[in-house]
Design a binder for these strands. Structure first.
Length: 405
DNA sequence: TATACAATAT
DNA sequence: TATATTGTAT
C-alpha cells in the first residue's frame, strides 16, 4: 500500500504517458485520485489532439486514436462521478467547447477556416448540384436534358432578338421569306421610289444588317408602288438597276418579299421581264420554255412557277398576235428593241414615254389602228398591255427569223 | 396578274 | 396513287 510504484508517481506527472489506454485504465483503477489522474491525462490527450489537429489530414489515424482515447477516458470519468451532470451532455459539451477553442485559437486558423469553408462549399455545391439535378430527377440524363433545354431557351431568346432585329434573315430564306413579314411595311414606306441600292442604303444607313434587309424590302415596295404604277419613277429605277451589278437585280429581289404577307401582285418590271425574255431565249423560245425552266434561269428570288407561267401565258398570247408572218418587221424592230431592252432603261423609257418609237410594234399598230390590219383588235390589247407593263412584248423577240408562233 | 381547273408527267 | 408540272380559261 504505502509503496507506490514508480509508474504511479510518474502517473501524476504531466510527462506520464501510458503505453495504451488499457494500461492507463489499469493504473487508474489503482490510483488514489482517480478523477484527478483521469482528468489530467484527458487534458493531455486533448492538448495533443489540438496539436495534431492541424495535421489531421496527414495524421488521420492519430486523430482517430486520440479521439477514441479521449472518448474512452471521458466515459471513464463519467463513471467516476456519474451524478455530476448528465453524462451525455457532459461528454459532448466540453468536447465541443474544446473544439471551438481549438478552432478559434491555437490551431491553424486558415486550415480550419478552409476546412469549414470547404465543407460548406462542398455542401452547398452538393446542394446546388442536387438542385439542378434533383429537380430533374437527379439523373445525368435529365440533367443533360435540362441543360440542353436551357440552351435551347437561350438560343430561342437570342434568335428571337436577332430575328426581331433582322427580319432579313428570314426573308432571305426563300421559303420562309414568303410567309408573313409585316414589318416590311414600314420599310417599304420609308423606301420610296428608288428601288435599288439607293433607297435601301439610304434608309438603312444605321445598321448593315438592316441595310441588306432594307434592300430587299425597299425593293419590294418600289415594285409594288411604282414598279407597275408610275412609269416615270420606274424609268429612273430602271436606270439605277441597270447600273447595278449583274448578280440579281434588286427589283427582282423585291418580288420575293412581295409575296410575304399577302400574295402581292407580281409586278413584272422591265428588268424582270428582261430576265424573263432572256431566259426564254436560252430555252429556245416561249413555246419551248416551261415555267419552271424559265424561273430557274431567271434566278429571281421569290418568283414562283405560277407567276412565271402566268407571265408566259401572256407573253405567248402577245407574241402570237404579232408573229413574224404577220407582216410586222419583227426582225429589225425586235433586234433594236432587244438591244434597248437589254439596256433596260431605254425600253422602259420608250414604253413609258409612249413616244411613237418605231421600235415598238405595238405602238405602231395602235397608232395605225384605223387600218384594215387584221391585228387591229389585238393591237388594242397589246397597246394597253404594253402600257401597263411598261415594256413591249415584241421588243423581246430579238430572234427575227426564229420568232415563235 | 392571279387563280382554278384539267391534262400530263414523274 | 400522290404529287409536280404545265397549259388553258376565267
Amino acid at each position: 500500500m504505502g509503496s507506490v510504484p514508480p509508474e504511479l508517481s510518474l502517473d501524476l506527472r504531466p510527462s506520464f504517458v501510458p503505453k495504451t489506454i488499457t494500461d492507463f485504465l489499469r493504473h487508474l483503477s489503482s490510483a488514489t485520485d482517480r478523477l484527478a489522474t483521469l482528468h489530467d491525462f484527458l487534458a493531455r490527450l486533448e492538448d495533443e489532439l489540438r496539436k495534431i489537429h492541424a495535421f489531421k489530414r496527414e495524421l488521420p489515424i492519430s486523430m482517430l486514436l486520440l479521439n477514441d482515447a479521449i472518448s474512452l477516458l471521458k466515459t471513464e470519468s463519467q463513471k467516476c462521478r456519474p451524478r455530476d451532470c448528465p453524462p451525455v451532455l457532459e461528454e459532448f459539451i466540453p468536447l465541443k467547447k474544446e473544439r471551438d477553442q481549438n478552432e478559434g485559437n491555437n490551431y491553424n486558423h486558415n486550415d480550419m477556416d478552409n476546412e469549414c469553408r470547404d465543407k460548406k462549399n462542398w455542401l452547398s455545391s452538393v446542394q446546388l448540384w442536387n438542385n439542378s439535378t434533383t429537380n430533374n430527377n437527379a439523373s445525368d440524363r435529365k440533367q443533360h436534358h435540362q441543360q440542353q433545354l436551357h440552351k435551347l431557351e437561350n438560343k430561342k431568346i437570342e434568335e428571337g432578338q436577332s430575328v426581331g432585329e433582322d427580319p432579313f434573315q428570314s426573308c432571305s430564306n426563300r421559303n420562309g421569306g414568303r410567309r408573313a413579314f409585316m414589318p416590311f411595311s414600314r420599310y417599304s414606306s420609308s423606301s420610296s421610289s428608288v428601288p435599288v441600292a439607293t433607297a435601301g442604303l439610304g434608309a438603312a444607313t444605321k445598321e448593315e444588317k438592316e441595310e441588306s434587309v432594307m434592300n430587299r424590302l425597299s425593293l419590294q415596295t418600289p415594285s409594288v408602288k411604282e414598279g407597275c404604277g408610275s412609269r416615270g419613277s420606274r424609268s429612273s429605277s430602271n436606270r439605277a438597276v441597270s447600273s447595278s451589278p449583274p448578280t440579281v437585280h434588286p427589283s427582282l429581289r423585291a418580288s420575293s418579299l412581295q409575296q410575304t404577307a399577302r400574295k402581292q401582285r407580281r409586278c413584272w418590271s422591265p428588268e424582270l421581264h428582261r430576265r424573263f425574255v432572256n431566259a426564254l431565249q436560252k430555252l429556245g423560245g416561249s413555246q419551248a420554255a416551261t415555267p419552271k425552266q424559265i424561273r430557274e434561269l431567271m434566278q429571281v428570288d421569290g418568283l414562283t412557277n405560277d407567276e412565271v407561267k402566268s407571265h408566259l401565258q401572256k407573253y405567248r398570247l402577245h407574241t402570237r398576235r404579232v408573229p413574224a408572218g404577220s407582216g410586222n418587221q419583227p426582225v429589225v424592230v425586235l433586234g433594236g428593241l432587244w438591244m434597248s431592252q437589254d439596256q433596260y432603261n431605254d425600253s422602259s423609257k420608250v414604253s413609258s414615254s409612249g413616244s411613237g418609237s418605231p421600235q415598238s410594234p405595238l405602238h405602231l399598230t395602235a397608232g395605225s389602228r384605223g387600218g384594215t390590219s387584221p391585228t387591229e383588235g389585238d393591237s388594242m390589247e397589246d397597246d394597253e398591255d404594253a402600257r401597263s407593263e411598261s415594256y413591249s412584248w415584241k421588243s423581246h423577240m430579238h430572234k427575227p427569223g426564229k420568232v415563235d408562233v
